[in-house]
Nucleic acid binder design. Structure first.
Length: 262
DNA sequence: ATGGTTGCCCAGCAA
């Protein structure tokens, strides 16, 4: 049975409950992975989600910051949660679906403004987090797994609006791109979005600070869908639903979708 | 080089 999955940095699930419901109604992914819920787990507004068929959830939360959740129409078991870099942040949750596929949902640290760990502790935390992800996947090779989330790195030149201008901007620096490539190699992860859409500019995030985000189109592809080689070939239909960035009271991220015929 | 916006919750940090 094929299922469709979406990943979306929601930037407060409580403030944006209405547009989560709208996405569920209009796009109806079977599995919806959220990041930056900014809510304790017991304060996530579940009633409306359940009424639309999303009766299963695994989540990690904290007050005010971070927070990840997987909402699913498919039964799902809570399988683990990593605290990479030992930050004490709610940045990872995983669920094993009844079809045997494990979903890892990550919110990688953004890394602050300056791409230099000697003067910016947050950048060091981001690199440490990526290093620990790499070690984790080397220690335990994932199988029949999908990794999604806001990885806060746009790896390719065509994942950003201007490669040269962003080489020293956190999210597109060579050291981050290399660290992300090491994570990907450690788990043999296939970049499903770029396997489906190999050519051309593709973004999933546009800053709130750009007044005319759609026309200016100074975006970055920070949100990713990866899969292990045993199921990556079953993926299709990848897309960024860009319109969502223009909905009322939007998140600064648009959701990324893929379908897996497992 | 700076400031541009938003969310948390009411100051200032994080993104």
């Amino acid at each position: 049975m094929p299922f469709t999955l979406a990943t979306w940095n929601i930037n407060s699930v409580r403030l944006r409950e209405e547009i989560v419901l709208r996405l569920m109604r209009e796009q109806a992914p079977d599995v919806l992975c959220l990041q930056e819920c900014k809510s304790p787990v017991d304060k996530i507004p579940l009633e409306g989600f359940q009424a639309l068929g999303y009766t299963h959830m695994v989540a990690r939360g904290q007050k005010g910051y971070n927070g990840v959740a997987i909402l699913s129409k498919i039964p799902m078991e809570d399988v683990s949660g990593y605290d990479y870099a030992e930050l004490g942040h709610a940045r990872h949750v995983a669920g094993k679906l009844a079809n045997g596929v494990t979903i890892h949902n990550f919110y990688v640290p953004a890394g602050g403004d300056k791409p230099d760990r000697t003067i910016n502790e947050k950048f060091g935390q981001k690199l440490d987090y990526l290093r620990d992800m790499q070690a984790g996947f080397l220690a335990e090779k994932p199988e029949r797994a999908i990794l999604v989330g806001d990885l806060n790195i746009a790896p390719r030149e065509d994942d950003v609006w201007d490669h040269k201008k962003l080489l020293k901007v956190v999210s597109h620096t060579p050291i981050e791109v290399e660290a992300l490539a090491a994570v990907q190699a450690a788990g043999d992860w296939v970049d499903v979005t770029r396997a489906d859409i190999p050519e051309g500019k593709l973004y999933s995030w546009w800053s709130y600070r750009s007044p005319d985000w759609d026309t200016a189109d100074k975006g970055r592809r920070l949100d990713h869908v990866w899969a292990t080689p045993d199921i990556a070939g079953l993926a299709s239909g990848s897309r960024v639903v860009r319109d969502v960035r223009g909905w009322e009271k939007p998140s600064d991220h648009a959701p990324v979708f893929a379908t897996f015929d497992v």
